[in-house]
Simulated scan of single mutants.
Amino acid sequence: MNDIDDFAQAYVLHRRPFRETSALVALWVENLGLVRAVIKGVAGQSKSAILRNAWLQPFQLIRVQIRGTRDLKTIYKFEPVPTGVVIKGEPLFACTYINELLLFTLNKHEPELHFFSYYQEFLKRITDIFRPDTEIEPALRQKQMIIELRCFEQYLLEAIGYSFDWGSARDENIEVNMAYGFEPGEGFFPQASGLYQGALLIAIAQGQWQTKGALGAARAALRQQLEWVLGRSLHAPSSQGKLMRPENG
């Protein structure tokens, strides 16, 4: 990658201190993918450093100018882009999981370019779910957030070419009254003692998330597939010292 004179949109997926006033960051840059870079002047007590540090936060869309041809780039300039996204409180842990999932995925795979826009819309939907003036009842907000998490995982697998069909098993349609097992990389297969009931798989395929048990079944199969794709457990400690996946999500 050569210098990019024009600004590119990006999100911070991970950052850590570097020297006295700088940070090492992993950025997801639109149309470029994962970029690791140094950003100077984001630590310290100066007004400029405090302001730049406030801009360099997860879920904050920024515009960056990137310099350098080696693996570790330099962010020459950056500035925030107003989006109205506010991730705090209850959804913070879930969205942090999504960022870590993206970080590990982007290390190995390049999603289709439109997935960057999908991530932006995902953050907006999560923000809308938890707005004080939302029409969603408080008791239903967490469930709606979990639905968004499952949809994000599905779409991520699709964007990197590892999706699977909820409605078929070994090229045969899923039957309502049958049970199925799941093999990562292969999909569902008939199994008398299988953990996945046909009725639930059909409900998931049709997006009927209100069906009892659908979210749990989706969570289990998606976790198996993601762990196979990433080559690691989603419950293992990440490089950031957090768990990859919220237990109730």
Rank of each mutant, 00 (worst) to 15 (best):
Q208G: 05
R70L: 12
P237C: 11
R15F: 05
N248K: 11
R219H: 12
Q144T: 11
H109F: 15
A221P: 02
R63H: 10
Q9Y: 09
K73T: 01
P58I: 07
G207Q: 13
T69K: 06
Y11S: 08
L51P: 02
P111A: 05
K124M: 13
S238I: 03
V229Y: 09
W28P: 01
G216H: 12
I174W: 01
R223P: 01
H235E: 15
R36A: 04
L243F: 08
R131D: 06
P184N: 10
F189D: 07
N99R: 04
D71Y: 05
T211W: 11
A179S: 15
K212G: 07
E247S: 08
Q225L: 09
I174S: 01
K124N: 09
G33C: 07
K108D: 15
R150S: 02
L24W: 10
L27P: 00
Q154G: 06
V176W: 07
S117Y: 10
E137S: 13
L102H: 00
I62E: 00
N2Q: 13
A43P: 00
R52E: 03
A10P: 03
T69Y: 03
V229P: 03
E172G: 04
N107C: 09
R141S: 12
E158P: 02
L226H: 00
G84Y: 14
N107H: 13
G216A: 13
R150Q: 09
A54K: 10
S168Y: 04
L230E: 06
G167M: 12
T105E: 05
E137R: 12
I147F: 08
Q154Y: 04
I202H: 04
Y11A: 10
F18H: 11
Q9P: 01
F182W: 02
G41M: 06
I98E: 01
R36N: 14
A159S: 15
F104T: 03
Q120Y: 02
Q120K: 05
R170S: 14
L123H: 03
Y196A: 06
I147C: 05
L101T: 01
G241M: 14
M178F: 06
T211S: 13
G181W: 08
Q210L: 13
G213Q: 12
D133L: 09
V229I: 13
V85K: 05
Q206W: 13
A139M: 09
G198S: 12
Q142S: 09
D3Y: 07
P82A: 15
S239T: 08
P80S: 09
G187W: 00
N31W: 02
L195Q: 09
I160D: 00
L34V: 11
I129P: 00
I98Q: 00
I75V: 15
F122E: 03
Q191A: 14
V81W: 07
F189N: 05
W166G: 01
I98F: 03
Q210P: 02
P237M: 15
R170N: 15
Q60I: 10
